[in-house]
């Protein structure tokens, strides 16, 4: 039961972007299309799960004062792997995400989960926590990508959905649209679930 809880809390109750307010930069920057948002979500989830597993395994061996630099080295190893794998297998997404791939290393979600969860919990729980947080993050940025792509371009995943009569609001795929989308998403979340 508790393992299941470790998994589900990241998706809604402690959603990293909407509730904990961390990991905002990639969420806003790469969510102009569904495809880029999905690529970012997968990359971050991979790093999050792998680093949670390794940190959880090493948690007894890591001295308390040295933990942050050690976490960062572990995380940056996985980020380098993702960086090179993406460049080899999907160069177009790699190009679209640009500097945001190496920046996964300072994504607050990953260091935050390492410090707050993986460092204190057994491997299985940490894996599920990483998976849940990663999925929660991916869901939000894909949703943002869908909203922005639909309103700003009239398409989803590149195929037109809204018909020819729709006049796309270009602002939604430009930077201001990202702030606007997440502002409204948070307001709606607050309206439905109330003050946290």
């Amino acid at each position: 039961m508790k393992i299941w809880l470790s998994f589900t809390k990241g998706i809604l109750k402690e959603n990293p972007v909407l509730v904990l307010m961390i990991g905002l930069c990639p969420a806003l920057a790469v969510s102009s299309t569904v495809r880029d948002a999905f690529g970012m979500g997968i990359a971050a989830t991979f790093v999050l799960v792998c680093s949670n597993i390794v940190i959880s395994l090493l948690r007894r061996a890591v001295p308390h004062q040295m933990r942050i630099p050690i976490f960062i080295v572990i995380i940056s190893t996985f980020v380098t792997i993702v960086d090179y794998v993406m460049a080899a297998y999907s160069p177009s997404i790699h190009h679209a995400l640009g500097v945001f791939i190496p920046l996964i290393v300072v994504n607050c979600i990953i260091l935050g989960r390492a410090e707050a969860f993986a460092y204190k919990n057994p491997v299985l729980h940490s894996t599920m926590d990483g998976l849940g947080m990663g999925i929660g993050f991916t869901l939000i940025i894909v949703l943002m990508g869908a909203i922005r792509e639909l309103l700003g371009n009239g398409t989803i995943l590149g195929s037109p959905v809204l018909g020819s009569g729709f006049e796309p609001a270009l602002i939604m795929i430009l930077p201001p649209g990202a702030f606007l989308t997440i502002g409204f998403m948070m307001a709606i979340k607050k309206k439905i679930w109330g003050e946290k």
Partner: peptide, 20 residues
């Protein structure tokens, strides 16, 4: 429901529009 962060994001959106 806009108090706090939501209105901050919408403010940032308008500033971003200005910088555009």
């Amino acid at each position: 429901s806009f108090k706090g962060y939501p209105i901050a994001f919408i403010t940032a959106s308008l500033m971003s529009l200005a910088f555009l």
